[in-house]
Amino acid sequence: MDKAYETHYHDLERSHFWFKARRNYILQLLKDVPKTANILDIGCSSGLLLTDLKNQGFNPNNLYGIDISKKAIANCKQNGLQNCAVMSADTIKLDLKFDVLIASDCLEHLQNDEKAVRNWRHLLKADGKLYIFVPAFQALWSQHDVINMHYRRYTEKQLLNLVTNNGFEQLKSGYWNALLFIPIYIARKLGKLKATKNETSKSNSSGDLETLPSLNPIFLGLLNFENRILKYVRFPFGVSTYCILAKAEKDSTR
């Protein structure tokens, strides 16, 4: 990842509506997990989700994170998270087994996603759970994906095929960020059209991660509302797709 963009990314992840709302939804999904659980955040960035978990009463000694970025792990240490290390998400080597693995917007960065999923399976306890979030729909592919060094976007079906073919059983799945899907889809299509017509002299170097001081609280409120109604509503589309998984009784990896 470009160093200037990485700095911009870390500056925004604390306050940007998209990051905050996604962390809120993950916390909502984890509300029944015991506070003593061993949790690994794969692609933990600056450790803000781990900090949220610590603030909600989870034992900080049982909270772990890995990230490929040295800067991200340095930020984790500055944020008081000591169980974090620089490591590639597809070849994690730890002596621990975990109750919970969280891979939030990580899998799309890995060239061999099957290898990663198989690696993650071996890190889980027999009754452990894996929570995955990834960008959805190749139709939303844009300069944002290029800057973030994504290999792909997924449909819910594609994500579930990947994980169930590699040793997991589906507990829950769906789409997230459905309420902003249409405006984001239109914005990205217009961005491609402008680029095709050479109306811009250079690509957007920050992707979709712009500071939106006036709109940020509005969008945050909208996505927090969506988080609440996802208990009762299942959307057929979204900017992200996710699943919660358990280890299959028999290893179905190929």
Rank of each mutant, 00 (worst) to 15 (best):
G191V: 00
L193Q: 09
T196C: 02
T164K: 13
A195C: 04
S201I: 15
K192D: 13
G167K: 07
L162W: 05
I182N: 00
R188T: 04
L179Q: 07
L162C: 08
P183D: 08
K189W: 02
G191L: 01
L190A: 01
L171M: 06
A195T: 13
F168K: 04
G167M: 07
L162K: 07
L193D: 06
V163I: 15
S201Q: 06
F181N: 10
K172L: 11
T164M: 10
K192V: 03
R188H: 06
F181M: 09
L179S: 08
E199A: 09
L179K: 06
I182Y: 04
S173F: 05
E199I: 13
T164D: 07
N177I: 10
A187S: 14
L180F: 06
I184N: 04
A187R: 14
G191F: 00
G191T: 05
E169G: 03
N165Q: 15
L193F: 07
N165C: 08
Y185C: 03
G167A: 12
L171F: 00
L171Q: 12
L179R: 09
N177L: 00
Y185Q: 08
T196H: 02
L171T: 03
K202Y: 08
G191R: 03
N177W: 07
L180Q: 08
S203G: 12
F181S: 12
K194N: 12
V163Q: 10
T200Y: 12
N198L: 14
A195V: 11
L171E: 12
T200I: 15
L171W: 00
A178P: 05
V163Y: 09
L190Q: 08
W176Y: 14
G191S: 09
A178H: 04
S173D: 11
S201T: 13
W176C: 02
W176E: 00
K202T: 13
T196K: 10
L193S: 08
L193C: 01
L162Q: 02
I184P: 03
K197H: 05
I186G: 01
R188M: 01
N198A: 15
N165V: 00
A187Y: 12
K202G: 10
A187Q: 10
N177Y: 04
F168E: 02
L193R: 08
K202F: 12
T164P: 06
K192H: 14
Y185K: 10
N165W: 09
N177C: 11
S201E: 12
K197W: 12
K202M: 07
P183G: 06
W176N: 05
G191H: 06
I182C: 04
T164Q: 12
E199L: 15
L162M: 09
E169N: 14
G174R: 05
P183H: 07
K192Q: 15
N177Q: 10
G167S: 10
S203C: 04
A187C: 07
Y175T: 03
T196F: 04
A178C: 11
G174A: 06
Q170S: 11
S201G: 00
S201P: 01
T196M: 05
T164F: 00
L190S: 02
L180C: 09
A187P: 05
W176K: 03
L190T: 01
T200G: 03
N165G: 13
K172T: 04
